[in-house]
Every structure is written in structure tokens, then in C-alpha cells.
């Protein structure tokens, strides 16, 4: 998906993990995805480089759909669709 398409997605859950360092964002994502339904979309905000690589791999392992990452100023947004 393009950046514009990602940003236009209707997000069902936002996890703002910009205050925490790795592995904080990953654990917050894990806790949060349990609270949404299959097919719903979650966005994770983080400023941690390790997380940028961890979450897509983790999502695929767990059967979720990694939709893409959008770079913002000083942080990034990862979009996942719950499997």
C-alpha cells in the first residue's frame, strides 16, 4: 500500500508507544492486538528502530497482516490488520 493509502485507513486501535524503548512497543502491540477483533486495523506509533524491524516479523509469525510503515517526523507508524 502507498503511504497515502495507509494514512487513509480507518484505524480501530492506536497504540502510542513513543515514550518507551524496545521491547516496550512490541509488548504494547501484543497486549493491544488482543483487544481488537479479527480483520480490525491497529496502528502502532514508535520512535524505536529495533521495533520497526521487530513488529512486522512478529505480526507475520502470529498470523496478522503487516500492511506497511509510514515515516513521520521523528517517529513512524506501523499498520497491522488482525488475523
Amino acid at each position: 500500500m502507498t503511504n497515502d493509502e495507509l494514512i487513509a485507513l480507518e484505524v480501530d486501535k492506536t497504540v502510542d508507544a513513543r515514550g518507551t524503548a524496545c521491547p516496550g512497543p512490541l509488548l504494547e502491540a501484543k497486549k493491544a492486538i488482543a483487544t481488537i477483533d479479527s480483520g480490525e486495523i491497529m496502528e502502532i506509533l514508535s520512535a524505536d528502530e529495533g521495533t520497526k524491524r521487530d513488529i512486522p516479523k512478529w505480526a507475520n509469525k502470529k498470523g496478522h497482516d503487516y500492511m506497511g510503515t509510514v515515516e513521520e517526523s521523528g517517529y513512524f507508524k506501523i499498520y497491522l490488520k488482525k488475523g
Binding site: 521491547p23 509488548l27 512478529w58
Partner: peptide, 10 residues
């Protein structure tokens, strides 16, 4: 502790 957190995520 970090390793255990990674294990927990998995």
C-alpha cells in the same frame, strides 16, 4: 529481562 520480554512477545 529484555530477552524474557522477547520470549513473552513470542
Amino acid at each position: 529481562g529484555v530477552i524474557l520480554s522477547g520470549a513473552a512477545a513470542d
